[in-house]
Amino acid sequence: MITVECLVDQQPVKAKNQGNRPTCLAFAVTDLNRSFLDEDLGPEYFYRATLSRIPDWKPGDGLQIPAAIEASQLGHPTEREYPYQVDEPAIPLEALPDNLALHGRPINFFTADVGHLIGRVRALVPMGLALRLTVDFYRPVDGIVAFSPIALPGAMMHAVVVVGLGCDEDSQPWFLIRNSWGEAWGLDGHAWISASYIESHAACAFGVEHGSSDSR
């Protein structure tokens, strides 16, 4: 049983569904920027802006961190103004519109140190994690992803957002994450992962600087 210490979200936040596209990082980055506007930011614009910075990209390749960092400097339109698409974009990529209001702040990547992550969550600052996935990640039980030391071979990194901190009966820390696989995953799209999972399977963490609203 996990005892909740703190939650970043003051109100329940609905988990979105990326569908059959490798867009998890785009969902996580726009989720991290949600505090800058009272309306959902759309991941499609950031995803396409990142793709345009990856030489020889083709559908299914996913994103690359340097390109994502550069693209995040642009900001993000609302989901209403630039909605998410079911399918991958066609090649050649269409130019992005230049008449949209863009919001949020750039992302930065850092080491997924558990102590640092605990401090950020206690400060009510959400962060993203790039995780190697295990079989158990696909099937949380009662909202908990069981720890396994064995990651799936050849799988892409998967981005999620950390939105809470708790501890188990042995006072070991656990982190509540929001996934982008819809509300059917875990408990309404959320689940707990252990510090051991992060230590074994997190390639890196990422976040944005939070403060007052930022529009461009």
Rank of each mutant, 00 (worst) to 15 (best):
I2L: 08
I2K: 12
I2A: 04
V4F: 11
E5T: 10
E5I: 10
C6S: 15
C6M: 09
D9Q: 08
Q10H: 09
P12A: 04
P12I: 00
V13K: 03
V13L: 07
A15F: 02
A15C: 02
K16V: 03
N17G: 01
G19D: 00
N20W: 03
P22N: 11
P22R: 12
C24P: 01
L25S: 05
L25D: 09
L25C: 01
A26K: 12
F27C: 10
A28E: 04
V29Y: 02
T30C: 06
T30G: 06
N33A: 02
N33C: 03
F36R: 08
L37P: 00
D38F: 02
E39Q: 13
D40V: 04
G42Y: 00
Y45I: 05
T50E: 00
L51S: 02
S52F: 01
S52R: 14
I54Q: 00
I54G: 05
W57C: 11
K58R: 14
G60D: 03
G60P: 05
P66C: 01
A68T: 05
E70C: 05
E70H: 03
G75I: 00
H76F: 09
E79I: 04
E81Q: 07
Y82L: 03
Y84L: 14
Y84W: 04
Q85A: 09
V86L: 15
P89C: 03
P89Q: 05
A90G: 08
A90K: 12
I91A: 01
P92L: 01
L96N: 07
P97Q: 02
L100I: 00
H103L: 02
R105D: 00
I107H: 13
I107Q: 15
I107D: 14
F109A: 05
F109G: 04
T111M: 12
T111E: 15
A112F: 14
D113S: 10
V114E: 09
G115A: 14
H116L: 14
L117S: 10
I118C: 11
G119C: 01
P126G: 06
P126V: 03
M127V: 09
L129M: 03
A130L: 11
A130W: 04
A130P: 08
R132A: 08
R132P: 11
V135H: 15
D136W: 09
D136Y: 13
F137E: 04
R139L: 07
P140K: 10
D142H: 11
G143A: 08
A146G: 06
S148L: 12
P149K: 03
P149E: 05
I150D: 13
I150S: 11
A151Y: 00
G154Q: 06
G154R: 08
G154M: 06
M157L: 15
H158I: 08
V161L: 05
V162Y: 10
V163D: 00
V163M: 08
V163N: 08
G166W: 04
G166E: 12
C167D: 12
D168R: 14
W174R: 15
L176D: 01
L176I: 10
W181Q: 06
G182I: 09
E183K: 14
D188M: 14
D188Y: 14
W192K: 02
A195W: 05
S196P: 07
E199W: 11
S200R: 15
A203H: 10
A205L: 07
V208I: 10
V208W: 06
E209A: 11
G211F: 09
S212T: 07
S212P: 06
S213Y: 14
